[in-house]
């Protein structure tokens, strides 16, 4: 069975639409800022799509960008840690919902999960796509992993 998956330009279009609407800022794709990826704390939010295509969708960013996202969503200067976790969860939920609509159905979307640190996908998962956009000089990644690569090969 051949299933057409998410094209990079479609993913970028969704990121652009979601950022513009929720964060009121246009994402900048392309050259990444010169940041030390090993420095500071990373926040990651994930959702999972279950259906003909099983997919893990993860957005990851430095803590400063996560706080910025929450500030923009809530329109407050000093969001709490709970606010930041909630905001990132909602960001990946909206991204995931829009990406899910481009995948074969019927499928379901999990509730979002936000953690501090990187998320290691299951060993059998396969990275399907990745885009990085820049918010105020900080990278925010969106990575999709196929959880059952054999089903779509």
């Amino acid at each position: 069975m051949t299933i057409s998956l998410l094209a990079p330009e479609d993913v970028e279009a969704i990121v652009e639409q979601v950022w513009s609407s929720l964060l009121e800022v246009e994402p900048a794709f392309g050259p990444l800022p010169d940041v030390d990826a090993s420095a500071g704390e990373t926040w990651t939010a994930t959702v999972t799509v279950s259906g003909p295509v099983a997919m893990l969708i993860a957005t990851a960013m430095p803590r400063e960008a996560a706080v910025d996202v929450a500030s923009r969503l809530l329109m407050v200067d000093d969001p709490t840690t709970e606010d930041v976790a909630d905001a990132l969860g909602e960001l990946v939920n909206v991204l995931g919902g829009n990406l899910k609509s481009m995948l074969p159905g019927p499928s379901t979307l999990s509730l979002p999960v936000t953690v501090t640190g990187e998320v290691a996908p299951p060993s059998h998962a396969e990275e399907q796509g990745r885009c990085v956009a820049v918010l105020d000089g900080r990278p925010i990644s969106l990575t999709t992993y196929l959880l059952d690569p054999g089903a779509v090969s």
Partner: peptide, 27 residues
């Protein structure tokens, strides 16, 4: 008001008696 606006979900919502389905991100 939901992050998913597929035809499948819109149909299910309508069948259930919902007046509308607004997909996130919204305006």
């Amino acid at each position: 008001v939901t992050s998913e606006g597929s035809e499948e979900m819109r149909t299910r919502a309508e069948q259930g008696g919902a007046l509308f389905l607004i997909a996130k991100p919204f305006t």
